[in-house]
Amino acid sequence: MNPIGRILLIVAYAVLGLAATGRSVVQITTKLDQAPLPYLVSGASALLYVVIAVALWRGWRRVAIVGTALELAGVLIVGTLGYVAPELWPDETVWTGYGSAYGWVPLALPVIALVVLLRGRSSADAVAGGVVSAGGDESSSDA
C-alpha cells in the first residue's frame, strides 16, 4: 500500500473517529431515549472509524477492507433511509444525508480508502504472482 495514502487515511479516520465519538458519547449519555436508533448508529459509526484507523495503522488489511466496506454500506443505507423513511430518524447521525453535516467526508472517505486498499492488494498479488511465475520458470528451466 502507498505509505503516504495509508498515513493520510489514518489521520482522516482518526479525526473522523474523534468527531463521531464525541458526538455519539454526548448523544448516548444525555438523550438516548429521545432517538435511540440514530444515536446508536452514531455510536456504531464512531466505533467503526476507530477500528479502521487502528487497522490501517497496524497493517490489518483485511479488517480495514471489511471496515471500510461496512462504512460505505452504512453511509449509503442510512443516507437513503433518511429520505425514504424519515420517521425512523428523529435526529441526525454522522451518516445522515450521506454525511452532509461532515462535508460528505463519510461518503468519500470509504471510497478513497477502498481504492487505496484494493489497489495495494492487487499490486501485492501481481508481485506475488510474478515471484511464483518467475519461480516456475526457473524450476522449468532447471528441469
Binding site: I4, I7, L8, V11, A12
Partner: peptide
C-alpha cells in the same frame, strides 16, 4: 513532507 502536508490540510 507530503504526509505532513496532507495532514496539515486535514487538521
Amino acid at each position: 513532507a507530503r504526509v505532513d502536508a496532507g495532514a496539515a490540510v486535514i487538521i
